[in-house]
């Protein structure tokens, strides 16, 4: 475990560094995939940066609205550098709106852009998982396996490594699909199915977290993962049918 990188007198927390690296890798891999699909790779960087900025603003605004009584007497805190003062869902919504707006204004093909972004997002997720391993976050369930790690004095599954390997495997599969010229949207749907199934499969290897359960003890990450995988499989089914129909019409 290496939660802090000590460089002389400088203490750098590894997890935020890993997240920065993950973001850069996600954009770079996505841009390369976009070029392979005949798109301008800069669009991936633009969407990523705009979405990040919108997410930061939306996340902070959401926090201000949710905790307005606390901000009312300290208005300057609205602009403060506090990494905790963000809410996820407003951030995600703002990022989605801005990214959609960019795609619409640039008249970019949605399915192809999602195909391009998918391997980058998976590679970024893999790096973030390895960052969590270094920082001792999102650690695994107790285990007696030869490859167990020992964060906080307990032998555990290196669940972050399992998750990173799964994300990388799906990313490689998706890149292979892109190289072979898959149908628009298929690579993104396979990425969603693969990632969803990996979360569904691997979540039990994480340390149990009762606060992350629904319906009397079901792990929410597993439920969401399975739901995402089923939606993606349904999408692939529809995509296959449409392509088939299009082929018939063309004949």
């Amino acid at each position: 475990m290496l939660p802090v990188l000590q460089i002389g007198p400088l203490s750098l927390p590894t997890y935020p560094l890993a997240l920065l690296l993950a973001g850069w890798i996600a954009l770079e891999v996505g841009a390369r995939a976009a070029r392979r699909l005949g798109l301008d790779g800069d669009h991936i960087y633009n969407v990523g940066v705009y979405a990040l900025a919108a997410g930061a603003v939306g996340g902070r605004l959401g926090h201000v609205v949710a905790y307005w009584p606390a901000y009312r007497t300290q208005l300057l805190e609205i602009f403060g550098f506090n990494s905790r003062a963000f809410l996820l869902w407003p951030a995600a919504a703002a990022a989605l709106v801005v990214a959609s707006g960019y795609l619409y204004r640039q008249r970019l093909p949605l399915a192809r852009m999602l195909d391009a972004a998918a391997p980058g997002a998976l590679a970024g997720a893999a790096v973030a998982s390895l960052g969590a391993l270094l920082a001792g976050r999102a650690y695994g369930a107790a285990a007696r396996v030869p490859w167990a790690v020992n964060p906080w004095g307990v032998s555990r599954h290196p669940s972050q490594v399992y998750e990173a390997l799964a994300a990388l495997a799906v990313a490689l599969l998706v890149l292979q699909m892109i190289r072979r010229g898959s149908r628009p949207g298929a690579a993104a749907l396979v990425a969603l199915a693969g990632y969803g199934l990996s979360r569904w499969l691997l979540e039990p290897f994480r340390a149990p977290e009762v606060s992350a359960t629904i319906l009397g003890g079901l792990r929410s990450a597993q439920v969401l993962g399975l739901a995402a995988a089923l939606i993606a499989l349904w999408g692939l089914r529809v995509l296959g049918q449409r392509t088939g129909e299009a082929g018939v019409v063309a004949e």
């Binding site: 569904w200 979540e203 039990p204 340390a207 149990p208 009762v210 359960t213 792990r219 399975l226």
Partner: peptide, 27 residues
């Protein structure tokens, strides 16, 4: 998928899932 989720559900009593070794980490 549903079988795997059901098999791995957590006990509602949180005390059964807390790792008993003290450490400066969440959980």
């Amino acid at each position: 998928g549903l079988v795997w989720i059901w098999v791995n559900r957590l006990p509602v009593d949180r005390a059964q899932t807390v790792d008993l070794r003290p450490a400066p980490a969440v959980g």
